[in-house]
């Protein structure tokens, strides 16, 4: 282990993120990586047991990221009726705890997709929390570098344009209570706090979507807690069960007090 994890929580401050020297990466041994994960687990789950299970949750991620600031992640959950929550952790990111999903009664948590930043060669972990309180983990190794500190390629002002705008695409047959797949797109720079402002030459403060609720009618689909490891302009794929009346409502906040809410009508059945 190179350093204790200080900036682990989902509500860390920008100060904790000041550009740190590379502390882990391509050269770490398996033992170092395992020790790191043990430490992270303890800080998130305390003394609870986390069981290894390659089948409970399968991680789809590129072995080598094409773009470290946008790494697509797919999480497939085997026993979806038993799922209560889902954690996603990027061990060697400056803030490893990337996302936590808590599913509600309208969820169909068989598959979740999201896009993340990866700052280093790292293990990523998904942990499923079951309704009976078990924690089941699986891991995958991803090669990427610089995803959190990489400049956005545009001015901060431009990156903030349309902040809070949302779109949702639906697929699948919305009839008969069958699950509907949905893609939620949110305009938000999700500044990591490690990117330099072009004008002031200071680091742009972290500004990221920290909470997001998706509901169908009055039923919760999922509640998401996010962090700086979520890529800019977050895109999340999920599924829900359209029982009762819609619409789908998305309410999001960011750590700087931004708050947005949008409603989407689920298209009616085509046959």
């Amino acid at each position: 282990m190179k350093r204790l994890l200080l900036a682990l929580s989902l509500t860390l401050s920008a100060a904790a993120l000041a550009p740190a020297p590379v502390r882990a990466g391509a050269t770490d041994s398996d033992e170092e990586r395992a020790a790191r994960w043990t430490e992270i687990k303890k800080s998130i789950f305390g003394d609870r047991t986390v069981e290894a299970s390659e089948t409970a949750v399968k991680i789809d991620a590129p072995a080598r990221a094409l773009d470290a600031s946008l790494v697509p992640i797919g999480l497939t959950l085997a026993d979806k009726d038993q799922v209560k929550g889902l954690y996603f952790i990027i061990d060697d990111n400056p803030s490893p705890y990337a996302a936590r999903f808590s599913f509600g009664p309208a969820a169909d948590p068989g598959e979740i997709k999201l896009r993340v930043r990866v700052n280093n060669y790292t293990n990523v972990h998904a942990v499923v929390e079951t309704k009976d309180g078990r924690l089941l983990e699986s891991a995958k190794f991803v090669k990427a570098s610089g995803g959190c500190s990489a400049p956005m390629g545009m001015s901060d002002e431009e990156a903030m344009k349309g902040m809070g705008e949302m779109r949702m695409k639906f697929s699948g047959d919305p009839q008969g209570g069958k699950p509907v797949e949905a893609t939620l797109m949110v305009r938000h720079p999700n500044f990591s706090g490690m990117q330099m402002n072009q004008v002031t030459r200071d680091y742009t403060p972290a500004r990221y979507v920290d909470k997001l609720d998706v509901t169908y009618g009055d039923k919760l689909v999922f509640h998401l807690e996010g962090d700086i490891s979520i890529a800019s302009n977050p895109v999340i794929n999920f599924a829900f069960v359209p029982e009762g009346k819609g619409p789908v409502t998305v309410a999001a906040t960011d750590n700087q007090g931004g708050r947005w809410e949008h409603r989407f009508d689920v298209p009616s059945a085509s046959n």
Binding site: A68, A144, S145, G147
Partner: peptide, 8 residues
Amino acid sequence: RRQALFGG
């Protein structure tokens, strides 16, 4: 690794 460092 270098390739990845330049990466994006």
